[in-house]
């Protein structure tokens, strides 16, 4: 699954550490999601989307 977290993070001038702290996860989790190595749960995906005030579809693109 592709995502634009890195783009939105850059737009909000946030480090991985800061975003991780806001979402209550580890920095490694943010890094793994950005690199596409880990697909977040629906709950975390919605929390990330809500944090950046975008829809989940804007943030994540499913690659069937």
């Amino acid at each position: 699954m592709k995502n634009k977290i890195k783009v939105y993070r850059a737009m909000h001038d946030l480090t991985q550490e800061a975003l991780a702290a806001e979402l209550g996860v580890t920095r490694q989790t943010i890094l793994a999601i950005e690199k596409g190595k880990y697909d977040p749960s629906i709950d975390l995906a919605f929390r990330i989307a809500r944090f950046f005030s975008v829809s989940v579809e804007d943030l994540f693109q499913y690659e069937g």
């Binding site: 920095r27 490694q28 890094l31 793994a32 880990y38």
Partner: peptide
């Protein structure tokens, strides 16, 4: 390793 525990930071 598979889920990126030891990946280096790109920042």
């Amino acid at each position: 390793r598979k889920y990126g525990d030891w990946d280096s930071d790109e920042e």
